[in-house]
């Protein structure tokens, strides 16, 4: 399974990512997911989110997840882009593409990857409100 991981502060350019798709003749499904910053966070209007990462561990944990995906589904490739730093409301913070022979595997793998990312990949977000507050969130 080919894997491409991009974690940086650059804006996510969906229009540029989609045409870069590489798909062999045996593949019948390309699933894309885009996560976008919402304007509301826990009933409070926000301007955007500041993302922070433990970069070295992020790379390692994503690769462990990709290893597991490879065991679970016959995927041809995964591409994942996660933006760090300041991301404004309505801008994408996450973009994922899965290429698989069939839609069932592609949808399942995409959902699993995002669910697991939210469980184990050390990235945190700090919503910034209209007033510029960044309240500490107790877990």
């Amino acid at each position: 399974m080919k894997r491409q991981l991009t974690i940086n502060t650059d804006p996510i350019d969906e229009a540029a990512l989609v045409p870069q798709r590489v798909m062999s003749s045996g593949m019948g499904a390309a699933v894309y997911f885009t996560g976008v910053v919402r304007g509301m966070e826990e009933s409070e209007e926000i301007q955007g989110i500041e993302y922070e990462a433990f970069q070295k561990m992020v790379d390692h944990q994503f690769n462990l997840l990709f290893d597991e995906m490879e065991k679970r589904w016959p995927l041809e490739s995964v591409r994942l882009v996660h933006r760090l730093g300041w991301v404004k409301v309505n801008e994408p913070s996450l973009w994922v593409e899965i290429i698989a022979p069939h839609r069932g595997e592609a949808f399942a793998a995409c959902r699993w990857l995002i669910d697991e990312m939210k469980r184990v990949v050390p990235i945190w977000k700090k919503p910034v409100s209209e007033e510029g507050n960044t309240p500490i969130k107790e877990a």
């Binding site: 996560g35 993302y51 990312m117 990949v121 877990a139």
Partner: peptide
């Protein structure tokens, strides 16, 4: 380092330990 460990993990000289709250990517 870059691996999660439980509370009973025995530390070794020079290791890098990281503490953080539940992750929230996406």
């Amino acid at each position: 380092g870059v691996e999660y460990q439980g509370r009973s993990y025995v530390l070794k000289e020079g290791e890098e330990v990281s503490l953080f709250p539940p992750v929230q990517g996406g």
